[in-house]
Design a protein around this nucleic acid. Structure first.
Lengths: 186, 186
DNA sequence: CGCGTAAGAGACGTCACGTCTCTAAGGAGA
DNA sequence: TCTCCTTAGAGACGTGACGTCTCTTACGCG
């Protein structure tokens, strides 16, 4: 019997967790079920992660890169913001609300850094827009900068169904753009 | 031994659940602990609520009335919106994030109605403001109407500490009022 | 005054948790 | 090539809470 080790084994574990998550959802995912799917023992999991939440978070990170490394650059402010929000929507509707809520409940110390990340992304987008002259200034209150991503996150968390794209465009056109003094033409 | 019944007993149960929630938090609250505190058996709880989440929600409703029944009327748009947001903040910082997240995770069908409720509250406030002439029109996109309360809810859920009042005022002054075309004087 | 509903109490089976223990694989070093 | 040491693979184990069931007994209703 080939015995897996190190990084190879770890990848198998994370894949097993991801598969379990996609197939049965967070509530059904147990350390036992992941171990069984990976054809190993629970101890192998507990050696690496302290609990279910950490395992699942690691598996999410393993499975998909971060939005931060993939900031859209469409050439227009509107396009960029839509791109970011759409990425968030896609990312999380894949998971479903029960995973999100479960994780929140079990991982009290889920990086606050994760949330502030989006602030940086939005700041970059706004800066570019200002340089292009689309808007007057990149000097925008933080609360405005984070409004679209926060509202998006709110939708994701509280709507029990995938976020419709009409909501995404409304967030951009009726909330964000007006706030940064972007006058709509068309 | 006096045997409690009906509404009297129910109140005792809800109070016990609330006390347990305040004292130990949602994670520590078990059907057993509530039953013990109320000096009764688990069956009495299960006869009324299907699970922990339903019990806790009932206990929250029992303990504090709804914001809807208490819409602020300060005479100014700004004051009214601040009032609503502050009520939300107070309400939920009392509970703590673990209760919120726990409930979300365990009560998948937590009334969507609960969220849309706030839309009505905000609509009423805006309507009054329009009638007073503070703003040009009460015809505001839903996404704008719900922006402040949704952002507030977002803060409550994701900040692990009480929401500072500076955030509350920023939401009103930098996001909501500009969106409804309220020009700040001072 | 007798009946029926539900309170009070707790036993019970189940499930997943997280810990522990044991055997054996297979890489590193001599 | 042999030995040692880490750790994979497997599963037993104790614990805690769940939600169900059962039993006795209080008490409101007719």
């Amino acid at each position: 019997m080939e015995r897996r080790r190190g990084a190879e084994l770890e990848a198998v574990l994370l894949d097993a967790a991801w598969a379990e998550l996609m197939e049965s959802g967070y509530a059904q995912l147990t350390m036992e079920s992941v171990a069984a799917r990976a054809q190993t023992g629970k101890q192998v999991l507990y050696r690496r992660w302290r609990n279910r939440a950490e395992l699942v978070i690691a598996s999410m990170r393993h499975h998909a890169g971060s939005i931060v490394e993939n900031v859209p650059d469409t050439g227009s402010l509107r396009g960029d913001v839509l791109g970011v929000l759409q990425q968030m929507a896609d990312r999380f509707t894949q998971l479903g609300p029960d995973t999100i809520h479960g994780l929140m409940a079990e991982a009290p110390d889920l990086d606050p850094e994760v949330y502030s990340r989006m602030t940086g992304v939005m700041a970059a987008i706004v800066k570019r827009a200002a340089e292009r002259g689309e808007i007057a200034t990149a000097d925008v209150p933080v609360v405005v900068l984070t409004a679209p991503t926060n509202l998006m996150r709110h939708e994701i968390f509280f709507s029990h169904s995938p976020v419709p794209s009409s909501t995404v465009t409304a967030l951009v056109d009726d909330v964000f753009l007006p706030l940064v003094g972007f006058s709509r033409e068309t």
